[in-house]
Amino acid sequence: MMKLAKKDILGIEEMTADEISLILETAESFLEISTREIKKVPTLRGKSVINLFYEASTRTRTSFEIAGKRLSADTINIAASTSSAVKGETLLDTARTLEAMNPDIIVLRHSVAGTPHMLARMVKQSIINAGDGAHEHPSQALLDMMTIREKKGRIAGLKVAIVGDILHSRVARSNIYGLSRMGARVVVAGPATMMPRGIERMGVEAFTTIEDAIAGADVVMMLRIQLERQKQNIFPSLREYSHHYCLSRRHMKLTAPDAIVMHPGPINRGVEISPDIADDPACSVILDQVNHGVAVRMAMLYLLSGGNE
């Protein structure tokens, strides 16, 4: 018998290598369910999962919803447009309202970092962080690690380059924790305006050019550029950004020969990755990431179910 000794999954930072492996292995077993004619098992029958999204997200929300449904849980989507603060409520009021609905698991996405952590301290239900501000996005990092493991057979010893707006990226932070813990060497790259202070203390090497970062890399992970960041003057124009940071064919000569290319989606084609690379089945694993997303989220729901006795 094994067990994920956690009430909540709030971030990769607080997960051990064993816990990460447990989720990945469980997810690998779940992959097959999605290939069945009846893509559903009765495991979480009678359990309810609230997908509480304070920030628009079609992909992650849909993925969690499908994961819940394939496990026969009742999934309820709540698109909360305003924060508790705007309503004049405290988070505790929000927590009590949620508890009154008596769910088993709450999947929470919020634009403000730390909100899942605050809520987790207030409710007895399990909280899964589906992305909080620029902090963590554990399910994304787990599906990324699952994809790397499937394509490369391992994570330990690989060089992974993460390129783009590291400053605002929860995907980068979760992957830095997870990949480092699983034994990969992680490097990051982006313009200095997109590089958070003290990033080296997280155990990564930081570069300002894509070429320096991806040299010999086994995995290249490109981050999405939020167009509205242009207003904060962290980059002057998409044209200039893409000219210097868009992954294109010429870069693939610098990576390891069998390097894979990843992106958390949705892609700005021609901004982060050139279309010919994004659609090249020889290196692009972007669609595998989506597929693994459901399995990883099934594993998270499954392992957290049963409460924290």
Binding site: E25, T26, S305, G306, N308
Partner: peptide, 11 residues
């Protein structure tokens, strides 16, 4: 299975 957090390894 959903009543306990102890899970048999999933094959």
């Amino acid at each position: 299975v959903a009543k306990t957090s102890k899970k048999a390894p999933l094959g």
